[in-house]
Design a protein around this nucleic acid. Structure first.
Lengths: 190, 190
DNA sequence: ACCTGAACACCGTTCAAGT
DNA sequence: ACCTGAACACCGTTCAAGT
């Protein structure tokens, strides 16, 4: 297999870092805490990720891949099911800890990111736009490619906002659910 | 007058801190940089704000007041004008630097905030809910108070999301404008 | 009341050194 | 290749000391 066990130190660092970024933020991420979590010393983390910015880039890249993989099976489903599944991916952040989409968190902290990591953030937005464009295209056969893209992005931004605000209010899933229900009722998710 | 000149050190600290939080984030805010900006020493900042958390609380509180003051004149206008004015308040963040709503930024970094500051964040959400509820009530005479509240919050979350994502994509106002246009076209802002 | 220098335990990063 | 201790300039915070 080309995909080895992959339970090595580098993977352990990324795994621990991802959770911390989602719950505390990138600026709150510490190489020393990370090192302690995986059982090495702070200086050793730099062997796998020369700078914190390099780790940020790897994290956004990996998160995009993971999100993409979880959206993939939804494409074959009906429009309503695909949208519901997409919403569920964001809603899942509230299960077990007040986490947040890593893309949304990094968007807030973009000023701390080096250029390569910012590019990955654009890639993350592309992943959402691409998925939603495909889903929307099923239902809106007459919309132009541009119109589908713009509409796709609006759904993505609305989901990030519902998650951001609900998180700020103590991880109140009700706030998230209520917002999504209005999105649906008013037609944003049609 | 009860409102004195107010150009004292405390105000200077809050003013500088607000801009830094909006552009870099709360976790990136440094007491030492703040001290340098206002011409005192790091330890002196603690005389005005004992802890960083106290400063956070004061910042969210003040920001809520300012936002509320800027929304107030919109209430007397027509529904469309009020919504347009509300959207403009969020759009203004992109003028001069890639800033972000302080409430949105603090929502992402909520884990770093002490309880009193989190309460102020709830107050900030209340300010938006209260304003939008009043505006929506003009148009939707038959909606219940609860329905108006939920709808108001959904508009607030959608605006925060459009700003968050646009900021993440390099402060691209086009992303923000496009998202708002879809919000409007689909009926979320009706 | 308002400010300060010095100390504390933190932070990312670098580097020479180990295996 | 992978790890380490020690050093650097940073961070929030505390405190005794100044005016």
């Amino acid at each position: 297999m080309s995909t080895a066990p992959k339970t090595d130190t580098r993977e352990a660092i990324m795994s621990a870092a991802r959770l911390t970024v989602q719950s505390e933020g990138y600026n709150a991420l510490s190489f020393r805490d990370l090192a302690t979590a995986v059982g090495i010393k702070s200086a050793s983390v730099h062997h796998h990720f020369p700078t914190k910015g390099d780790l940020a880039e790897a994290l956004v890249c990996r998160y995009s891949e993971d999100f993409s993989a979880r959206m993939a099976p939804l494409i074959e489903q009906s429009f309503d099911e695909a949208i519901a599944g997409y919403v569920a991916l964001f809603r899942g952040a509230f299960d077990g800890g007040n986490r947040m989409c890593l893309g949304g968190m990094m968007s807030a902290e973009v000023s701390a990111l080096p250029e390569p990591a910012r590019k990955r953030l654009e890639g993350f937005a592309q992943v959402h736009r691409g998925f939603l464009r495909t889903v929307l295209a099923k239902k809106h056969k007459r919309l132009s490619a541009e119109a589908l893209d713009v509409r796709a992005m609006a759904i993505y931004t609305a989901m990030e906002g519902a998650q951001l605000v609900a998180r700020g209010l103590g991880g109140d899933v009700k706030v998230f659910d209520n917002a999504v229900e209005v999105y649906r009722a008013t037609g944003l998710l049609d």
